[in-house]
Design a protein around this nucleic acid. Structure first.
Lengths: 335, 335
DNA sequence: CCCGTCTCTGTTAGCGTTAACAACATTGGT
DNA sequence: ACCAATGTTGTTAACGCTAACAGAGACGGG
């Protein structure tokens, strides 16, 4: 693989200084004469020198890389989060290494974390929305900076999460405010914390309004499962309002309702969760809850960097409030 | 940041061998006595030893990391590709580092590539669907294994790409076969090769059938732009068949048609491109073209690994044929 | 019984960087 | 003019690993 680029010593020779001075310039060390600094900079530019991250990582014990462990990076939520994390990290001078896993079981997560650790990442962000993921994290070496996103609220790990409960409560309340007597819910997979939180929020809002929650319908995030639930809802004339755990479920519900001739929002109102970019173009445009992925990414990285810099663990946590986006899929119930 | 894990010498001491023997065991070197190998393995397990990738990268000159440069990893295509790349790479023992960029201009791409190079990645995959990206790649050091995905077919770089032309031709032909006299097209942004290829395929199919292509409508991949184009198409009674450059555009078109009371597929047939998981739950279910992202990822990685191993460049290229997925959004034209 | 060959293992020397310390030059107060 | 404090630079030693070579046994053919 041919020519290795120039090393620090080459730059030093050209600039007429020691390699250590080059290192100081690179790391913004204060005690370097301005003139020297410029000479070094010029030499760096002339040679096209690029510092060797591996050597740096070796001597400092950590690289400027953050490892991210995620499951299904094709889903809208995780994908957005990953992108936001990458952007935020890049701004701080960190690269992001993805370690996606097929399943969020103990073994897969551990393996992914191991891979990251052997590359001496500076810290790890785990998108750990299910129970089994949490277990894996407890057996991790204590000295690795770690942040979980959408993880188990009951574990003593630094955690950043969207306020699922508040979002679901807002969605449900929005439907109640429109005049509906009750709200049905199509949930996500029951082992996801996101899903559980949304169920809780929905139930809370109903109970607070003195309403006995109707039976829960179980989906799995997919439009396909939303469609199946929708077929049942469509056949129940008493149903006038549905809150789905995400927008894709809502899409499936919308289609089922459409097939059964139940008009949205005239006969039934629907609210989703996620605000995927297409939600505004569903038929009809979908009222939904928008989590702020950028804010989640920023908060996660901030928590991580604080650990990296200070060395202190600290079971900090931060919650990001989502916002309701009102569109045409909600209306008062039919008279 | 507390305790650094055990190093190779610690393992060596425990196993009663030299660190070099440990290295040999780790790298599967043949000349190690079975008994020694087992002792070393045991010591590794007992200490929870994890090799230091940085040190290895330093001495060998490359890490087991592949850098990926992509633009908008939130879009379905790029996200799927990234996930597939990661899976494939992991199977080969490589980690994937993402370097997403806001814009695909010369500067951003170069910067992202630089970041990867300074981490001494083993190779780079650039998802480079626009013209400006190609330019940046020409000025790259020659000795870096590189593969472009969805890049400029006219450049002498290893390239893997979905056969956009064939996919678009199939979609258009499918509509013609259903009996439509012509097919309209809503394109993606005109600086994307994907977009250009799909326009070409559409045009080819029409010309081959002796049809003069109707005016092209320009979109930008988003449902919003599809909606705008759809509003125009809906008002033109002669339109009976539309092929959109992706599924999200199709979603926007579907909604516009719906609002104008034009039924799909009774009045107008629609075909998309991408087969997003939700396409089957659009109203009506969308006929679309499915690119095989896994195959693209496999091919890219294969090309990259070949370069990494052999050191030879070689302007290889590989094209992945997409498949048409027929659903309810296509029917014969109204009589 | 000796010597070449093969198998296994150890020793040594880097890879390119930062950290720690040493050394020298400059400054300012007395 | 002298000493301490400060600013600037150089020297040396790691960091943990692999590559290259060297050495010690074991084995078989002459």
């Amino acid at each position: 693989m041919a020519v290795h680029g120039p090393a620090m010593t080459d730059v030093a020779r050209l600039a007429g200084v020691s390699h250590q001075t080059v290192s100081r310039v690179l790391n913004g060390h204060p005690n370097v004469r301005e003139q020297t600094r410029l000479r070094v900079r010029a030499a760096i530019a002339e040679l096209g020198y690029r510092p060797n991250g591996a050597a740096r990582a070796l001597v400092t014990g950590r690289s400027q890389v953050i490892g991210v462990v995620a499951q299904n990076t094709t889903l809208y939520g995780p994908a957005s989060l990953l992108a936001a994390l990458e952007q935020t990290a890049a701004a701080e001078g960190f690269a992001v290494s993805v370690g996606s896993v097929r399943n969020l079981d103990h073994r897969s997560i551990s393996a992914a974390v191991e891979r990251h650790l052997s590359h001496r990442v500076a810290g790890i962000v785990v998108i750990a929305p299910v129970e089994s993921a949490g277990e894996a994290l407890e057996r991790l070496p204590q000295d690795v900076p770690l942040v979980t996103v959408d993880g188990d609220p009951s574990r003593p790990v630094p955690l950043v999460t969207v306020d699922q409960v508040a979002g679901a409560r807002a969605a449900t309340q929005h439907l109640l405010d429109a005049g509906h007597r009750t709200v049905w819910h199509v949930s996500g997979p029951s082992d996801w914390f996101d899903s559980v939180g949304r169920v809780d929020g929905w139930r809370e809002a109903l109970v607070a309004a003195g309403i006995d929650p109707p039976p829960l319908m179980h989906g799995d995030w997919s439009a396909a499962s939303g469609y199946r639930c929708g077929q049942m809802l469509a056949r129940m004339p008493e149903v006038t309002a549905v809150f789905t755990a995400n927008d894709h479920l809502a899409l499936g519900v919308l289609r089922a309702l459409h097939e059964f001739g139940r008009r949205v929002p005239d006969d039934i109102s629907v609210v989703g969760f996620d605000d995927v970019p297409e939600a505004a173009y569903f038929i009809p445009p979908l009222t939904t809850v928008r989590p702020d992925f950028d804010a989640v990414a920023r908060a996660s990285l901030q928590l991580l960097l604080r650990q990296i810099e200070s060395g202190t663990g600290g079971a900090l946590r931060q919650t990001i409030a989502p916002a309701l986006v009102a569109r045409a899929s909600v209306a008062p119930p039919p008279a």
